[in-house]
Design a protein around this nucleic acid. Structure first.
Length: 1124
RNA sequence: GGGCUUGUAGCUCAGGUGGUUAGAGCGCUACACUGAUAAUGUAGAGGUCCGUGGUUCGAGUCCACGCAAGCCCA
């Protein structure tokens, strides 16, 4: 049994599976938490996914991101509890159930009871839990799946009720209006989701009016405002302009009444309203009925000049009159000059923007009192004008002798064709048309035309929707706006811009949180009210509910508690059956609304522990979260609700660090969709490539907050380049460590200071790597961390350290040098296994276990280790710099050899390196042996000034000169470029040089220029990285012979391999005489023998059974025999 | 319509505080190396740094206005 298992081929998915079962078998996850009992906690909150759909590849991204920091912090010594969770309420569940049952919302309570419906929802919502759990395990996301929080649990809901009651007691819950899409035909509000159904937005031709609002105190001056919904004009209570837009007053005539008038509109819109052909016509020449209507711009304004101007109400209906500041011009930041007049008519009841703008400006809307004394809009819920407007319109129809397809009474004015009347009837007139005719006749319409635009329709009734004020329960988040903004600034957002921009701006423009949803499957609002709304009660716990129920039963409002003999279920319909008793003995009924599911998830810090009813100590130790992560689409969802609840009720942030990750798109940058077939199945990917490369790819390819264009080739590349190289390195180590029976023993290892330069260098690099990974991870930057690890592994460890140290592993018996090499490489691999374990938990643990199989002093898993802290004393900057020089110089020599067509096997006498400082020389000398071996040269000569053969060049140091000379810099630079050796040596000798600059003297110092040596006359020279190297290309006989000897060694090695000989097998070599080779073979006989494990090498006249090998310029006949 | 993000080589990405010749990996081509060998090295080709204007002695980098893609919100 070998100490370090060797692998011909690595099965990455297999590693994932075997390590996963190892973890399960040994309870590693649990131990990683128990290990840290009593240590400082690091708190992570899991944003609950919904299990009613299957998980996709983007969930791998999100869950990996959550996992890595928890693992990292565990290694660092924190105790990291991670409770899983499930989001179970909400519209998607309802829609899925309805689809499966073939029913609609209207059928609930008729074809199917609420009880049955909700039971169905409860079953459906966890349908894919198994798949989710499987994915979670397979990608190595460590989270407690056995005891998750579930948002439909009675205990969970009880915690929510507690929070709601706190809000209620603080007077932060209220009932109010909001403008929502509403379908009069269906009698219901529509969610934005429903509005986004395909086919909802349709192009329709509506009557549009540019109405004239007469400016107060003038005879014939008007504001022009355009609308595609003329029926909202009776509800107008203000006009909005853009403060920075340009407006003009135009003198002209009304095209319907021919009256002279002046009208104000945006300058940019004049050409749309007036025919340029009429621009030159004189106003005085106009005659009533002329086609071309002359016009003249008589004044110009900025939008802000118009603010506060008053105008007369468009429809003089006495009951709709409003006090100031109604009917004034206000500012609207959304006003544009894309269409219309650049002046926007506002009707508070029928537009969300209108509502918001008017509220902000304290301008009342047009409402009337209903029979209960409540304010209602002048259009009722059937989409029909109330008689207050209807009778006015009916009167005006008579007054203006307007006839239509039917007689209109006060109760007949539907604002859209909700009665399905025949629009093809030539006499058909919609309310909009009737309004238009009235306005035209009254000289209040500047233009009326059909306008085609996209307008939303109800997906059930196909009828146009209205924007309409509906009652809702709100949380008064605006009352805490300043606090929300202030505390947000203490949160570390990744990326920062999401915190300041997307989230910060959202907080700055905060509106109250609309909590109500008119649905069935969700957390019920725990509010009961008397029928007249005079008394309201909010229930904050099950105990309180039961106590109140008892009162209701005692009063006789209920025969018995709906929960008698049953487990408590706080869902509908049970809570709806509860009737409470008011202080005056009246019946109280529950407000039928459910609450926004975002409140469910935002309450998870509390509800996951059933706080405050249980687990107060756990809650306190794990609040607020140190870290959360979720998709950027959650910014106004989960991130906000967590923040809002924490700030309003706990006066602190809910999370200190947050990563908002981007989307996972397909490789072409398109959104993945099952329908289009470009969605990547995570299970297939895992099966083919294993979890580690997948995770690594997602983290290292791009910052997680950028969108990821998922390309499976990228996963393969990570696997080849990073995991493959690391695996090669391990295999190399294992191969020789087994042969030498190397065992790492921490107590007998060679002190780093005693190890060779190369070892101290890679160990220095390793310490720097540890620090870089720590720094990156402490800043929640996984991409930097993974890239640093990858760079170290591939470029430093494998392609430099192992390559240069190779011979030390295979040459001779165990000695101190060899042991140092083993120990160094072992330490690098061990540290890597820990550094990478957060990102590639399976492979890292597998590597760790391969390295520690026979070590009793190491835990059963890398995930149970303590962080290998960097030893800064081992960091040697000067050595790192030396090695960088060695790498650069080697690279230059390689490139020179290529240019001169001198292959590396051909030894060369020397290279020359010009050194301008003693320090550089020393640094190169430290690594001289490495360079010589790497590029196969005998010696390095350093040349300095005293040699007299250096040719130096000089160039301006722009960064420095720019600051000193500013605009004159170009003149200075031009002078410097003209310098010859004289000026260079002068500034080097004296440290400064005085130049003439436009007649004035200026002093340049050595720092103002960059002096380098880039040429040695007569030599083959290459220069880069600030280093110059010259190669001695002279081939002496001896060098040529050595070259031949080396070539021959190579050929013999190949023959050995072809013959299938083992590394330690001995051979005998016969070579047939050849003029070109004889001297080389004689002089380098012992070298050849040592290298090829030959006991003897003889030159003979004729070789029997020979093989012919191709040398560079000739052929040799050779025979090789195995000895013994 | 608003807010935010992204735009650099065929592809994926780096490019503190502005500095004159814009880099890496993959891919491609050629050559080399050969006891890590399905590995590795070197070189080459490949760029209107999304566009337009501006600030500056100097702009991939700063500013303004656009364009394209994406997310969220109306």
């Amino acid at each position: 049994m070998k100490r370090y298992q060797e692998y011909k081929q690595v099965d990455y998915p297999g590693i994932g599976e075997s390590i996963l079962s190892y973890w399960k078998q040994h309870d590693i996850f649990k131990k990683s938490i128990e290990n840290r009992a009593g240590q400082e906690t690091f708190t992570f909150f899991e944003g609950p996914p919904s299990a009613n759909g299957t998980p996709g590849i983007h969930h791998v991204m999100a869950r990996t991101l959550k996992d890595i920091f928890c693992r990292y912090k565990t290694l660092k010594g924190f105790q990291v509890k991670r409770k899983g969770g499930w989001d179970t309420h909400g519209l998607p569940v309802e829609l899925q159930v309805e689809k499966e049952l073939g029913i609609t919302k209207e059928d609930i309570g008729k074809k199917i009871s609420v009880e049955e419906y909700n039971r169905k929802c409860r079953e459906t919502v966890m349908r894919f839990k198994d798949q989710w759990d499987e994915l979670t395990e397979k990608i190595g996301y460590w989270v407690d799946l056995e005891d998750p929080y579930i948002t439909f649990d009675a205990k969970y809901i009880e915690s929510l009720w507690h929070l709601l009651k706190q809000l209620f007691d603080k007077d932060l819950l209220y009932k109010g209006y909001t403008i929502q899409p509403y379908s009069p035909a269906a009698g219901t509000g529509l969610s934005s989701h429903e509005l986004n159904q395909p086919g909802c937005y349709r192009d329709v031709k509506d009557t549009s009016i540019t109405a004239q609002f007469k400016i107060k105190g003038t005879d014939n001056e008007y504001f022009a405002a355009w609308t595609t919904t003329p029926w909202t004009l009776p509800s107008n209570s203000a006009l909005a302009v853009g403060e920075n837009l340009d407006y003009v007053k135009v003198k002209t005539f009304n095209q319907y009444t021919y009256e002279p008038m002046q009208i104000i509109m945006a300058k940019a819109r004049v050409n749309s309203y007036f025919n340029p052909k009429a621009a030159d016509l004189a106003l005085a020449d106009y005659k009533a009925g002329d086609k071309l209507i002359p016009y003249e711009i008589v004044a110009e304004y900025k939008g802000k000049d118009l603010l506060g101007m008053q105008y007369e109400q468009l429809f003089p209906i006495a009951d709709l009159a409003l006090p100031a500041p109604a009917f004034t011009v206000i500012s609207g930041d959304y006003v544009t000059t894309e269409d219309g007049t650049g002046i926007v008519h506002l009707a508070k009841a029928f537009g969300a923007d209108d509502f918001r703008t008017l509220v902000q400006n304290n301008i009342p809307g047009v409402f009337v009192k209903d029979e209960n004394g409540q304010d209602v809009p002048v259009v009722d819920k059937q989409g029909k004008f109330l008689p207050v407007v209807g009778s006015y319109l009916a009167e005006q129809m008579k007054a203006h002798q307007i006839t239509a397809h039917k007689d209109f009474g006060p109760d007949d004015f539907y604002v859209k064709n909700y009665l399905d009347e025949n629009e093809n009837d030539p006499e058909y007139k919609s309310t909009d048309v009737i309004i238009s005719i009235i306005l035209k006749n009254e000289n209040k319409a500047f233009r009326v035309e059909k306008y085609e635009h996209s307008y939303p329709h109800c997906w059930r009734t196909d009828k146009p929707i209205l924007y309409y004020p509906l009652e809702s329960w709100f949380i008064k988040t605006t009352a805490y706006k300043d606090k929300l903004v202030a505390l947000n600034k203490t949160i570390n957002w990744k990326p920062e811009s999401t915190g300041t921009g997307r989230f910060g701006n959202w907080l700055e423009n905060l509106v109250d949180w609309n909590l109500s949803r008119s649905r069935f499957w969700g957390t019920p609002l725990p509010i009961w009210r008397t029928e007249d709304g005079s008394e309201t009660k909010c229930i904050g716990s099950v105990a309180e509910l039961e106590a109140e129920i008892a009162k209701g039963v005692a009063k006789g409002f209920m025969k018995a508690s709906p929960y008698q003999g049953k487990e408590i279920d706080l869902h509908r319909p049970y809570v709806d059956d509860v009737i409470l008793v008011s202080s005056t003995g009246e019946k109280m009924f529950r407000e039928p609304d459910l609450i926004d599911v975002w409140f469910d998830s935002g309450a998870m810090p509390y509800a996951q522990w059933h706080y405050p009813f249980e687990n107060q100590d756990i809650f306190k130790a794990n609040y607020p979260a140190d870290y959360i992560a979720e998709g950027v689409d959650q910014t106004r969802g989960w991130f906000f609700t967590l923040h809002a609840i924490a700030v309003m009720l706990f006066d602190q942030v809910a999370f200190k660090n947050v990563i908002a990750n981007g989307l996972v798109l397909d490789k072409n940058g398109n959104k993945m969709s099952k329908r289009l077939g470009n969605a990547v199945d995570p299970f297939v990917t895992l099966k083919e490539h294993g979890p580690d490369a997948l995770r690594w790819y997602m983290l290292s390819n791009a910052n997680p907050w950028d969108n990821l264009k998922f390309n499976i080739e990228g996963v393969q590349e990570v696997q080849r380049r990073f995991f493959g190289t690391l695996q090669n390195t391990y295999n190399f180590f294992a191969l020789y460590a087994n042969l030498d029976d190397f065992a790492y023993s921490p107590n007998q290892k060679i002190a780093v200071a005693q190890r060779p330069e190369l070892d101290r260098w890679i160990i220095s690099k390793l310490q720097s790597l540890i620090i870089e990974v720590e720094t990156a991870m402490d800043q929640y930057d996984a991409t930097r961390a993974t890239r640093a690890i990858m760079n170290f592994t591939v470029d430093q460890l494998s392609n430099w350290y192992v390559r240069l140290a190779r011979k030390r592993f295979w040459r001779g018996e165990m000695n101190a040098d060899k042991q140092a090499a083993y120990e160094t490489l072992y330490e690098c691999l061990m540290t890597l296994s820990q550094l990478m374990s957060s990102f590639a938990p399976f492979y890292a643990d597998w590597l760790f276990q391969n390295l520690t199989k026979e070590r009793k002093d190491q835990p059963a898993s890398v995930h149970l280790t303590d962080w290998f802290a960097a030893d800064t004393a081992l960091i040697n900057d000067s050595l790192e710099h030396s090695m960088q020089l060695a790498q650069d110089i080697s690279s230059l020599v390689h490139s020179l050899r290529k240019k001169e067509k001198l292959k590396v096997r051909q030894p060369l006498q020397k290279i020359l390196i010009p050194v301008l400082s003693e320090q550089t020389k020393t640094q190169i000398q430290h690594v001289e042996e490495l360079i010589k071996a790497e590029v196969n040269i005998k010696a390095i000569d350093y040349i300095d000034d005293t040699s007299g053969i250096l040719v130096k060049s000089v160039k301006p140091n722009f960064a420095k000169l720019g600051k000193e000379f500013g605009p004159k810099m170009k003149l200075v630079a031009a002078q410097i470029n003209q310098w010859t050796a004289t000026e260079i040596s002068e500034i080097e000798r004296t440290g400064q040089l005085i130049i003439e600059l436009e007649g004035e003297k200026a002093t340049l110092t050595k720092e103002d220029v960059i002096i380098s040596s880039q040429d040695i006359p007569g030599w083959s020279v290459a220069s880069d990285y600030g280093v110059t190297v010259a190669l001695d290309v002279t081939l002496t006989d001896e060098l040529k012979q050595e070259g031949i000897a080396r070539d021959l060694v190579n050929r013999i090695q190949n023959l050995r391999k072809d013959m299938g000989l083992d590394v330690q097998d001995k051979i005998k070599i016969q070579v047939q005489h050849h003029e070109a080779a004889d001297d080389a073979l004689t002089n380098f006989k012992s070298y050849i023998c040592v290298e090829t494990q030959a006991t003897d090498l003889v030159l003979v006249n004729q070789v029997n059974a020979s093989q012919v090998v191709e040398m560079d310029d000739f052929e040799l006949s050779i025979q090789i025999e195995k000895v013994g």
